[in-house]
Write a protein that binds this DNA or RNA. Structure first.
Length: 887
RNA sequence: UGGCACGUAGCUCAGUGGUAGAGCGCCGCCUUGACACGGCGGAGGCCGGCAGUUCAAUCCUGCCCGUGCCAACCA
């Protein structure tokens, strides 16, 4: 026979290093994958063979933190699994460089501020600012120069991110890269605007809008957060016009008193029945304002009657609209009290001189300072609303803790400032949005409730304009009438073919540059889009929506959207909204939500607490596979502590694979089929593992898949099967070549299958061991392109007499090991003789695997004893005599 | 105040309507021809509390307590 001379493709273990050099291997394999384009998406394959990932574009101006490792690994594990399943994986990478975080970073880094009126400098020379420079005033640079600096910084930041992601082994197709500020994204984003405009989903409006006084830009509902802040109730006495009546309102914002435009109480409140319809007079400023009833006033709160100002909060806006109240805007865009004069139609007063005197005290001040000052003014009896009323401030302010709305990136409370803004109409589409959200499958399921709660609680349309610089320009111009006033209804939207445009430098069709800002001409919109307006298009950015119908058809909707839960209300929500508004579609079939990374003490990581972990040192210390192991051990949606112990376990697992691979592939033997009972039983067990792990992956449960694979590898493979088959594999058991070949064949099969099951989690070590022999043997140079193990693969193997053979062998081996441990002898000590007791049935089951057990335990002579008192399936070892310890 | 999630060994976490699991840590032993970046053995838990459903509850239901997140309350 010619075949019995055929040898397994083995390796010489002595030529391998003693220890796995992970840092070296990580760089080597990253290059290999890149050169061979292992992760390249093939545009020619059909949609049903494609798996599309809508990758989160990280904010590159933010610092790298361990959370990036965590959630991106979750995605990558799935990507690698799907690729091995034979799917054509589309796995792009985007960088979110657009917007405020970058601006802020540039401002700090170079110590500059953007001043649109500053002259453009052809060659801008700026260096990172020194501590000394930071003490002086920031340098003012033009908008184009500022944008140039933003681009300079983001290029550097992107490199850092790419470096991390490559080192981590993310199987990204780096040819599919985008940045949310690049030409392609500006184009898609502006086309999105045009499409929404044509469909009637957009409007612009001059109205009170949430405004950050530091960034000096409007902010959307989704970007607000509430922070608990100390405040105080101030009780202030008002008078009634033409009457002797007085009443006391309670307010936390006394500085808005000059902006008081009305007073309201609940219509059923018996205390204030006779006031409705009359005018109140404010103290200090003596402004007459209407008193009206409103269901929104709560008789239980404060004194039950309150002042309405332009604008203290959202309810003020509502009252202002519904009651048609005056507009007395006090707080300017920079957060200080604007100069106003009393004694005219806008700011009427019964005593303008006094009003102006009081106001002069607080004009130009910031909100906090103005509040302190006005409290003092309210102590002045002369300031009473009615003659002889005494000091308007009743008693001392009563301190309270209350929640105040902030821009999530801001440092001072939001103000409501009337400004012209663009909005996407969403409030009228809540139920349609909910239906779309329901069509998407959320993993874990309960995360849908976050989306639902947010959508149901929506209280404002989406404000998409920002008064900033580094972002996608809103592609519109406005006609100017003969007196130079913009016509905000006659909007000139750029044509799709001309996009992307910058209306501050490009000219609308039919006009020329000379007409810019001239009466009868046009003016360009200088606002940019909210970052989310672009980020909400990542599926379309990848699919080239509106540019390439064929590609779009293959890549949209995407299969999965991985993201974390805190941005469900922004990124997930807006993306669902866009897909619905553009094509009445869902943007992806599944949303895969990662939890948060907590610090080792299970506290939320935050910069202010200084407990943020940077990823590279952890990767250096525990290897990329170790870091991935930690990430992948966490179930979706579960907040997870960055516990070094878990990283360590991952690193240890990779080492174990290295060593096990070295042993298994180091065995030389003739090629024979798997035929010995123990080997067949092992293969049967392996089949069960493949089925369970595959099912877990299909169920988006990567953590279970990893845990099952790891447990099998450690418990069944290295700690038992490998030990039991070892002697036979080495040909030391005195069996024939067929038995030896069987052992080696099944050891290799076990290694082969386990490596492939581990490959999505531990791409480096699995590729390394794969490369030693399987790459050539299987004709697949990268394990990451190898077929995912299937039960069908094992169909050609003969079944064992009974699958229980494996467990019986292990139970007996464990019992003998325990006897050795109890006698404190090494596991390698030879046994001269022992008695193995078990019930008759168990004993019979042991027979076909007994040889391997005796060989593995180095047992020279044995007696089998049937003993019904021993529990079925287990063994008692008696009358053990150990050989003397060899010299 | 409401919604969601979580509460299991010292720590980090799995898990199941039928005698409770892993890793780390701890204790004892073993320098074994893949691996001391190992191996073997062991100790350690009224599965947050109280009720209910069930033959049987750590698991299902209700209430309570605690933790986290989200949202509301913001005069």
């Amino acid at each position: 026979m010619g075949t019995d001379k055929l040898q397994f493709r083995s390796i010489d273990p002595s030529k391998l290093p003693k220890h796995f050099d992970a840092p070296e291997a990580e760089q080597r394999w990253d290059r290999f994958w890149e050169e061979r384009a292992i992760f390249a998406w093939d545009p020619n394959r059909p949609r049903d063979e494609t798996f599309v990932i809508d990758t989160p574009p990280p904010t590159v101006s933010g610092s790298l933190h361990i959370g990036h490792v965590f959630s991106y690994t979750h995605t990558d594990v799935l990507a690698r699994y799907k690729r091995m399943k034979g799917l054509n994986v589309f796995y792009p990478m985007g960088w979110d460089d657009n917007g405020l975080p970058t601006e802020r970073r540039v401002q700090n880094y170079f110590h500059v501020r953007c001043d649109p009126s500053a002259p453009f400098e052809e060659v801008l020379e700026v260096e990172p600012a020194s501590a000394k420079q930071r003490k002086s005033h920031p340098r003012l640079v033009s908008r184009p120069n500022f944008i140039e600096l933003c681009e300079r910084v983001t290029v550097e930041d992107e490199k850092a991110f790419e470096g991390l992601f490559r080192r981590l082994g993310l199987s990204i197709d780096w040819r599919q890269q985008y940045a949310t500020i690049d030409r392609h994204c500006r184009l898609i984003s502006q086309r999105s605007f045009r499409d929404l405009y044509e469909k009637g989903h957009l409007y612009n409006r001059d109205a009170p809008t949430a405004w950050d006084v530091d960034f000096q830009t409007a902010v959307a509902q989704a970007e607000m957060e509430e922070r608990s802040r100390p405040g105080a109730f101030h009780h202030v006495e008002f008078a009634v016009e033409g009457d002797t009546g007085r009443f006391v309102i309670a307010t936390t914002r006394p500085e808005l008193l000059p902006a008081c435009v009305g007073v309201t109480a609940h219509p059923d409140d018996p205390r204030y029945q006779d006031l409705f319809g009359k005018n109140a007079v404010t103290p200090l400023f003596r402004v007459p304002v209407p008193i009206f009833p409103s269901e929104l006033a709560d008789p239980e709160k404060g004194t039950g009657i309150l002042m309405v100002c332009t604008f203290g909060d959202q309810t003020d806006v509502q009252w202002w609209r519904e009651e048609g109240l005056a507009l007395r805007q006090l707080i300017g865009r920079n957060g200080t009290l604007m100069p106003v004069a009393f004694g005219n139609d806008e700011f009427p007063s019964a005593d303008a001189d006094a009003a102006n005197r009081y106001y002069a005290e607080i004009a130009g001040k910031g909100v906090n300072q103005a509040r302190k000052l006005i409290v003092e003014l309210l102590r002045d009896p002369d300031g009473a609303a009615a003659v002889g009323g005494g000091a308007p401030l009743q008693a001392e302010p009563e301190p309270i803790e209350h929640n105040v709305k902030f821009y999530e990136k801001g440092d001072r409370p939001l103000e409501l400032v009337p400004t012209r803004q663009w909005f996407v109409r969403l409030l009228d589409k809540q139920s349609a949005l909910l239906a779309k959200g329901e069509q998407v499958q959320w993993h874990p399921k309960f995360m849908y409730s976050r989306f639902r709660d947010w959508t149901e609680g929506l209280n404002a349309d989406w404000c998409i304009s920002r008064q900033r610089y580094f972002g996608v320009p809103i592609p519109v111009w406005y006609r100017l009438d003969e007196s130079g006033v913009p016509d905000y209804d006659g909007v000139l939207v750029a044509e799709p073919e001309r996009m992307p445009v910058d209306p501050t430098t490009d000219v609308p069709t039919g006009f020329d540059e000379g007409q810019r800002d001239q009466p009868g001409g046009f003016t360009g919109e200088s606002d940019i889009f909210d970052t989310w307006f672009t980020s909400s298009l990542t599926p379309q950015i990848g699919s080239h929506w509106s540019l390439d119908a064929e590609r779009h058809g293959k890549l949209f909707p995407a299969d999965i959207r991985p993201q974390s839960h805190e941005i469900i209300r922004t990124w997930a929500f807006y993306t669902i909204a866009k897909a619905m508004l553009h094509e009445d579609e869902i943007p992806w079939r599944h949303v895969v939500i990662s939890g948060w990374v907590l610090d080792p003490d299970r506290k939320k990581m935050s910069k202010s607490q200084g407990n943020v972990l940077t990823p590279m040192p952890l990767i250096e210390k525990f290897t990329a596979d170790g870091a991935r192991y930690w990430s992948a051990s966490a179930r979706l949606g579960t907040d997870t502590a960055a516990d070094e112990k878990v990283f360590k376990v991952g690193k240890r697992l990779a080492t174990k694979l290295f060593n096990a691979g070295k042993f298994v592939l180091g065995q030389t033997a003739e090629v024979h089929p798997v035929q010995t009972e123990l080997d067949r039983a092992f293969v049967a067990k392996l089949r069960g593992l493949i089925e369970r792990v595959t099912a877990s992956f299909e169920d988006f449960n990567h953590a279970q898949a990893l845990s099952d694979t790891e447990a099998f590898f450690w418990t069944h493979f290295t700690d038992s099967y490998l030990e039991l088959a070892k002697t036979r594999a080495r040909g030391e058991a005195g069996d024939g070549e067929a038995e030896r070949g069987s052992a080696v064949a099944s050891l290799r099969l076990g290694l082969d299958v386990l490596l492939r099951l581990f490959a999505p989690f531990l791409p480096y070590i699995s590729e390394e061991v794969w490369s030693w022999a399987f790459a050539v043997e299987k004709g697949e140079s990268s394990i990451h392109r190898a077929a995912w193990p299937s039960a069908a693969e094992l169909d050609g193997f003969d079944a064992p007499a009974t699958e229980a053979s494996f467990d019986v062998a292990v139970a007996c081996w464990n019992a003998i090991n325990k006897a050795k441990a109890d006698s404190e002898v090494s596991m390698g000590r030879e046994v001269e003789a022992l008695t193995i007791a078990a019930d008759a049935e168990t004993l019979a089951g042991l027979e076909p695997v007994l040889g391997d057990v005796l060989a593995a335990t180095r047992c020279r002579a044995h007696t089998l004893a049937a003993d019904a008192s021993v529990e079925a399936g287990s063994f008692a070892v008696r009358e053990v005599r150990f050989a003397p310890k060899p010299d």
